[in-house]
Every structure is written in C-alpha cells, then in structure tokens.
Design a protein around this nucleic acid. Structure first.
Lengths: 120, 120
DNA sequence: TTGACATATTCCCATATGGGCATGTAATGT
DNA sequence: ACATTACATGCCCATATGGGAATATGTCAA
C-alpha cells in the first residue's frame, strides 16, 4: 500500500513545505497565481498543482476575476491540525517541568548519572 | 521529484493516521511495542516501522527494558506543528466574525445575493 | 547452549508524488 | 477572428511509501 494521497486530508496536504508557504502567503489577502509564481520562485504549473491539492482539501478558496484566479487561505480548514496538536500542549509543559526538576536536583547532587540510557 | 520522505520532518511523519494514533497513545505513558500491536490491531512489523519513522524525527523516545522496548511520545517535537497552525488562529476568528456579520446583515436585508460565485 | 519471547529489519510490489515540459482552456483587447 | 495573457492539465519519470511475509537481532530463562 502506498502513502495516503496528498488530497486525502489536511495533514497530508500541509506535509509539503511549498504548500505551507502558499497557505501563509494567502492568509493575509487573496492573490492571483502569478503573485505566487513570482514570490515562491516556482514554475507556474507547479504552483497551480499545489493550489489544486489545497483546493481539494478545502485549505484554499478560489474565485475568478477576469482572466485571473484569486486564491485565499481558508483558515478554518487548518483548525483540525491545530486542535490535534493542542491535545499535546499539556504534555510538553509537563516535560519542561521535569527538565526543570532534574536541573534543580542536579544542583544538590552534582554528580548524578542518568539511570536510563536513552537510545537515539 | 518524489514526495519528501516521511522522516524528513514532523509534518511528514504525522501525515500518516496510524502514526498520529501512536503518538496519542504514547503521550500519557510509555508502552512496549506489543501494547501498540494489540491496541491498533496492526501487524507487529508495521508498528515497528512506524515507530522507526517517529523516532527518526524525534517524535518518540525509546528505552529498553529487558526484552521489551518502551516508547513514549516526545511532545516537544509536536510543538513546531502547533506553532505553525497557531499563526492562523487569528484568521479563522476573523472568518467566523465575517460569517456572523453576514448573518446579521441578512436579517436586515433578507434577500441579498452573494456577489461572488465561489468555485468548489 | 538451547529455546522462547519481543522487537527490528529486509525484501517484495503497486501506487501517488512533484518537477519539467508541452499543451489545453478561458477571458480580454484590438 | 486573432493574438495575448493567465491558468490548468496532461504526460513523463525516479523515488519513497506501507503492508505482508520471512528473517534477523536481542534478551532472558532453564
């Protein structure tokens, strides 16, 4: 079985760095494709393909204005990613706390070896 | 050019749903591989491979305990994802505001057409 | 040492990928 | 009608992919 499609969900779509750049660029204001080509220094077909992926998963919206297509980020579609990452917020706070505790313990017992040999 | 490697960064690693499940499961407590196999109903080699990817990008830590390997989520490594998504927080708030405004405008001018024909 | 248990790695394969390039399509101006 | 502008799509290809099956590695127990 191959990897899930880039258009299967927002997680897969934003895995590509260029697409994240596009989303950031289109968040403030809607813009035509040409602007992205100029800014990202990427070939026009590549930009169009990335936009196609982003559109398929609802991360961007498009409307036509004359011969141009104006794209803008649909921030709502990023929310599921935010929500998922947020569930780990409390854990990294705990981890920081543990690091702090270890540091404090060290000042009292200067020479203390780590009981676990962490791998990698 | 193919897609970026799953081990290239956290964004690519968490694109896989199974790996997200693993991270959630290992967030509360460290656990051996066997627990994951039983919980996720996935073949052992698959689980090991997913863990390998997660380890390569620092999303999990491992230590040996006898013949078992205990894995736990390194929540710190999820933070970059959180930070990136958070930059869009203000935008989805604005969008909700806009929706609210439109709804309120509608109550005053009941029959009002959307000036833009949105695509997709 | 031998065997059992727990996990890791290797080999296999169909498939989606992103970039380059060429071509198709849509809207405008003359 | 025609050329031009602005995008979209199609085709090509090397490559990483996740699951399955088999095998290798590592650790303990007798």
């Amino acid at each position: 079985m191959p990897r899930a499609t880039t258009t299967s969900d927002a997680f897969n779509a934003v895995a590509e760095p260029r697409r994240r750049e596009i989303l950031s660029y289109l968040a403030l204001q809607e813009r035509p494709v040409g602007d992205l080509v100029a800014t990202l220094r990427l070939a026009q077909p590549s930009v169009s393909k990335h936009l196609r992926v982003l559109r398929d998963v609802g991360l961007v919206r498009a409307r036509r204005q004359g011969r141009r297509m104006l794209y803008r980020t649909n921030a709502e579609a990023i929310r599921p990613l935010y929500d998922w990452t947020k569930t780990f917020e409390c854990f990294w706070q705990h981890q920081l706390l543990r690091i702090k505790e270890r540091a404090e313990a060290k000042t009292q017992k200067p020479i203390q070896q780590n009981p676990y040999k962490e791998e990698r």
